[in-house]
């Protein structure tokens, strides 16, 4: 009896191992488990022919065999199906190149401009859309630069007529915001500015700026430093250091030049920072009282601060671009690097 079972089991194992496709598999299943004529099912039917006392042991052994056969067949079927699926799908050389879809890109300066705008919005600033074609009054006079002011020299200007020009900075946001809003004011203006500089590796007649104005009661220079510090760390790197030193811009007093620790040498001194460890990045200061007056701020408790920064300059520093003209050549080999 035991011998029969073990022979049956052995022959099943041999047959099952030889299965290669679902057809073979079905044949083996039928050979052992078919209701009519299956070897296992057939053997089970012989149970009744056995003496009563032998039946339980034989029954148990046969049921175990049947379970074994069924489990084995299930496992074998999974393996067979997997093999067949694999055979249906051809082998793919995954190292071949993908379809050459074009990447597309946002312009590096424009993307930086958007990032900067987002930083300011998160700090409670309103972003004003101001015209590039500006009146002399807003670009110069209301910023404490009357006609024939020497500071105008540094901003050689494109004019359309005596009173109309291409803005030389975005600082007109100071006057525009104060004329149309009441303190507390936090506003920026970003975009293209123009100066009559010949186009070369370090100069362009057109570049990008962001100008910042904050006006409210009780602002002081410590606040300017606090906000500048947060801004510069977000634009460049949280580890950046900042220093302010006295500087001159007619529309601020006190005025400051703002340096950041050299991003190329971390302030140790290199060719890019002329061994000083510092890189000049922007101009800032407390809004000049004359500018406040001209813009209609009469309350002496109200003060303000302002700063202005070249966005191209940041891009040049951040990305190590060595020729400003690359930003306006639109060479895809350049653009697609951003």
């Amino acid at each position: 009896m035991r011998e029969t079972i073990s022979r049956l089991r052995q022959s099943f194992e041999e047959d099952c191992a030889a299965v290669t496709g679902s057809e073979d598999w079905k044949a083996v299943r039928d050979k052992y488990l078919a209701r009519e004529g299956g070897l296992v099912t057939g053997a089970l039917k012989k149970l009744r022919e056995l003496p009563k006392e032998e039946r339980p042991a034989f029954g148990q052994a046969m049921n175990a065999l049947r379970e074994f056969v069924e489990d084995r067949l299930d496992a074998r079927l999974q393996a067979v199906k997997a093999g067949e699926r694999d055979r249906k799908r051809p082998f793919v050389d995954v190292t071949r190149p993908g379809v050459p879809l074009a990447p597309g890109s946002a312009h590096p300066i424009k993307r930086l401009q958007a990032e900067i705008e987002e930083i300011f919005v998160s700090m409670g600033f309103e972003v004003l859309d101001l015209p590039e074609i500006e009146r002399d009054y807003y670009n110069f006079e209301a910023l404490n630069m009357p006609p024939n002011h020497p500071a105008r020299d540094a901003q050689d200007t494109f004019y359309f007529d005596d009173a109309t020009l291409l803005r030389t900075h975005c600082s007109s946001v100071q006057v525009h915001s104060m004329e149309t809003r009441k303190p507390p004011i936090r506003a920026i203006s970003t975009g293209k500015v123009y100066r009559r500089d010949p186009f070369d590796a370090t100069h362009s007649p057109m570049f990008y700026q962001v100008d910042v104005i904050v006006v409210e009661e009780g602002l002081h220079m410590g606040h300017l430093k606090g906000m500048l510090d947060v801004f510069l760390k977000r634009v460049f790197h949280p580890g950046i250091k900042m220093r302010l030193r006295p500087g001159f811009f007619p529309f601020v007093e006190p005025g400051a030049e703002v340096d950041i620790s050299c991003i190329f040498c971390s302030g140790k001194g290199c060719a890019k920072c002329k061994q000083s460890g510092w890189i000049e990045i922007l101009g800032a200061g407390m809004v000049h009282p004359r500018v406040l007056e001209m813009s209609g701020i009469r309350d002496p408790r109200v003060t303000g601060f302002a700063w202005g920064m070249g966005i191209d300059r940041v891009a040049i520093l951040k990305y190590g671009v060595d020729d400003i003209r690359l930003f306006f050549d639109n060479d895809l080999r350049f653009l697609n690097q951003f």
Partner: peptide, 28 residues
């Protein structure tokens, strides 16, 4: 006051983030 700040040292003015009183808005 700028003369005084120059000789006091801009680096000796403690930085302080100004209290927020505005909501902020992106450009149109």
């Amino acid at each position: 006051i700028e003369e005084l700040a120059r000789f006091h040292g801009y680096q000796n003015i403690p930085a302080e983030f100004p209290p927020s009183r505005t909501a902020g808005a992106p450009s149109r």
